[in-house]
Each structure stands twice: as C-alpha cells, then as structure tokens.
C-alpha cells in the first residue's frame, strides 16, 4: 500500500503553550522563594534547635557574626581561625567601628555556635569579645517547629 505523498514542505507544529505555562509557573515559584536576607550562614555549623528561637522583628544594627565550629575553631570572614587568634580580628572590627565613629558597645555579637561545641569555648569566645569592648551578645539557634 503506497503512502500518500505530502504535498509541499511539511512542518510538525509542536504546541508550546503548556510548556511555557509550566515554565513561567516554575519561574514564579523560584522568584517568590528567593531569599534576599543577608543572614550569614555556614554549613559547617549545625545550630542547636529550640522551639523558642523565634526570629527577631528587626535585625541588630551593627551585627558581628562569629561562628563556632564543633572542633573549637571560629569562622571569621569565611576562614577558620583558632579561638586564641580571634582577639586580633576583633581588634580590627573594633578599629573599623571606631573609624566609623561608632562605639564598640553598640555592636551586637551574634554567636552561631555548633550544638556539639564545648560550652567553655563559647564562653571563651564571649570573653574575647568582652575584652575588646563588645557587650551585646545573642546566641543563635534554629527554630524547631516539631512539637
């Protein structure tokens, strides 16, 4: 049985409409879930969980985020620094603040410590900050919505 020969150039028309619909839905989803917050996070630190760790209404004005890993190293500007050396970096922070005519005691030190780290290391970190004149501290925890 001979097939009928198509006359002229044949073109298969693919209906693009459903694909474009789905694609725009996807774009909309990703745009809305985009996180614009400038919060400092690091996968090397696993925060402890707490049901009461509700996010603050307003972020602190002069935040200094210090992240303590479970091995006792502090992540400062993305690099692991030993706890003994953090004082020098804090001195820099203090000098930068004073150069911008801000007092160090207006800064809030955000302590993002790993849940497995030693409490003594957290206290030592706080003490190093106090020695440089920082006195506002918050301890950061991950909000636990399990009941």
């Amino acid at each position: 049985m001979a097939r009928a020969k198509n006359s002229g150039p044949s073109q298969t028309d693919v209906d693009m409409t459903p694909m474009i619909d789905v694609t725009f839905q996807l774009i909309t989803f990703f745009v809305f879930t985009l996180n614009f917050s400038q919060a400092v996070t690091d996968d090397r630190v696993q925060l402890p969980m707490s049901q009461l760790a509700k996010p603050a209404e307003a972020p602190p004005l002069e935040p200094i985020t210090l992240q303590l890993m479970s091995n006792g190293k502090v992540i400062y500007a993305g690099e692991p620094v030993s706890l003994a050396d953090i004082g020098g970096y804090l001195e820099n922070e203090k000098r930068v603040m004073i150069a911008a005519s801000k007092e160090p005691d207006t800064a809030t030190v955000i302590v993002r410590a790993d849940g497995r780290s030693r409490t003594g290391d957290v206290q030592e970190l706080i003490k190093s900050c106090q020695e440089k004149g920082f006195e506002r501290f918050v301890l950061r925890a991950e909000y636990d919505d399990r009941f």
Binding site: V138, A141, Y143
Partner: peptide
Amino acid sequence: ITEGDFDIRM
C-alpha cells in the same frame, strides 16, 4: 531555615 536569637546579658 528559620533562626532565632536568645539575648544574654554579658
């Protein structure tokens, strides 16, 4: 991840 802060007075 929702994170929250605890104030400590030091």
